[in-house]
Nucleic acid binder design. Structure first.
Lengths: 268, 268
DNA sequence: GATCTTCTGTGCGCTAGCGCACATACACCG
DNA sequence: CGGTGTATGTGCGCTAGCGCACAGAAGATC
């Protein structure tokens, strides 16, 4: 169900009151973000902030030895380019498009200008930044203590919540890169989940069949991150009702999330 | 070499210009932070921000199963209570005193008030927050890819930079809790480091003998975090020269950091 | 439709780190 | 100064995940 591109698909932009939004609108530029595109690399000066609508961006760190690990993901609930308004300009991590799609981008100076006005935009961005910190610290703990399968479930659920389709377009190899584990480990875990009917997949495509099932196998980290995102961004008012989802989960409020029975019926 | 308590021992406070500092000074309250004191728990409303001088605070997350992992540490380079000005009020992690010492605390409302003025304080706090994010994401990557020994070195170095004494007062058991690993793992790694003359320890005390040695065994994460802290907090002007260190490392600019030869001479 | 690329499945030996169980020994305190 | 609690040392079996190597299979390309 591809919607027409609209800046209100991004929760942060959608939360701006008309007056504030009007100031920005003319400077928002819709850009396509292809899979794998690098929005910034460690140490480079970012020129734009990106407000994803359908794209998902992965913030990750690559070690000296070439190993990588995602520290947080950004979908239409947030913005890529925190360092622009935090004052650091650059970061030691990089940002890569993990799910192709679109984003609205805003020039560095415009963002900073708006932020420094101490507007609602500032408040939104700071709250979002805190949610991002929760993701990062949760990822740190998760990397230490939870199994590959648990982490795969967490990752699938977080990604699933950020897209409007049931099918994620990504290879196991790339997922392994995000989680910082072996591709074979992902293959094995995904195999188990498929055998149990929670997901189904084919080369480069993963479909979530039973969200509740995945949740039962995920570690707590998914729930913690999701709850925190909802909490921190929930009390904002939306400019237009019915356009932007009121929760992190893009399907929140829609019909039941589990389609397991449906597909079982279809295939049986 | 215990200095008299002074708010300028905290880098953020020391960086405020006289005019701004004057507004806060009367509201800063010196408090002693004993080892193990919990400054906040997940979900609780924090009443004060803490600006450590000699104390070190560990931000960490405890999993449902009781396992824990530090996501970042805060010494006199920073402040505990980010969520107060970020707008979230609470966090999903907790803050525990890891090295006993002192801190200046500031009431929630005062901090928020000062922050909202858009003063230099705001700029400082945001930059520090970004440095904190670097720590968190680096910890996530480190937890995934680096060995216990590497992580122990990283942790020792970061802690060492935050204290003014050569000796850290902490048990291996507590360190294990910070790193989220087994106590035995720390014992083994520490044993190796001691055998090589990089550190020496006895029940609850660890002395750094050869900082360069530790650096050679640490993962890159130490350098990345330290560099980022220095970068983000380096261009601030200090109120009084010669009082506050200009770098994260409390010993920066002092005589050589390695005392290995000395101690070898002494014991040989 | 044949070819070629890339993704997924599987096996196997290896290692780091875990969990547990004690032994030892230091430091404090009465 | 001896006793006691706590910190550290060590051994051992176990498992998750790694690294590697290769087989099979699904799509893309022409």
């Amino acid at each position: 169900m591809p919607l027409l591109p609209s800046s209100s698909q991004n929760h942060l932009l959608a939360a701006l009151p008309q007056a504030e939004f009007a100031l920005l609108e003319a400077h928002l530029e819709l850009v396509a973000l292809p899979l794998g595109k690098m929005l910034y690399e460690p140490g480079t000066q970012l020129q734009h902030a990106y407000f994803p609508t359908t794209a998902i961006v992965s913030l990750h760190y690559v070690t000296e030895s070439g190993a990588s690990a995602e520290t947080a993901g950004v979908g239409n609930e947030g913005v890529v380019g925190i360092s622009l308004f935090m004052g650091g300009d650059t970061t030691s991590s990089s940002a890569v498009v993990q799910t192709a799609g679109h984003a609205y981008r805003l020039e560095r100076r415009r963002l900073k200008q708006e932020f420094d006005r101490g507007s609602l935009m500032q408040r939104l961005l700071l709250r979002y930044t805190q949610a991002l910190m929760t993701q990062m610290s949760q990822t740190a703990a998760c990397n230490r203590h939870h199994s590959v399968e648990q982490q795969l479930c967490r990752w699938l659920l977080l990604t699933y919540d950020r897209v409007s389709s049931r099918e994620l377009v990504i290879t196991q190899e790339l997922i392994a890169g995000m989680l910082g584990v072996r591709r074979e480990g992902v293959t094995e875990a995904a195999g188990n989940l498929q055998r149990e009917g929670f997901i189904s997949y084919r080369r480069g495509h993963i479909s979530v069949l039973d969200k509740a099932g995945l949740e039962s196998r995920a570690c707590e980290c998914y729930a913690v991150v999701k709850k925190e995102l909802n909490r921190l961004l929930s009390d904002v008012q939306y400019r237009q009702e019915g356009v932007a989802p009121a929760a992190f989960d893009n399907r929140a409020g829609l019909s039941g999330t589990s389609i397991r029975q449906d597909s079982a019926r279809r295939s049986g």
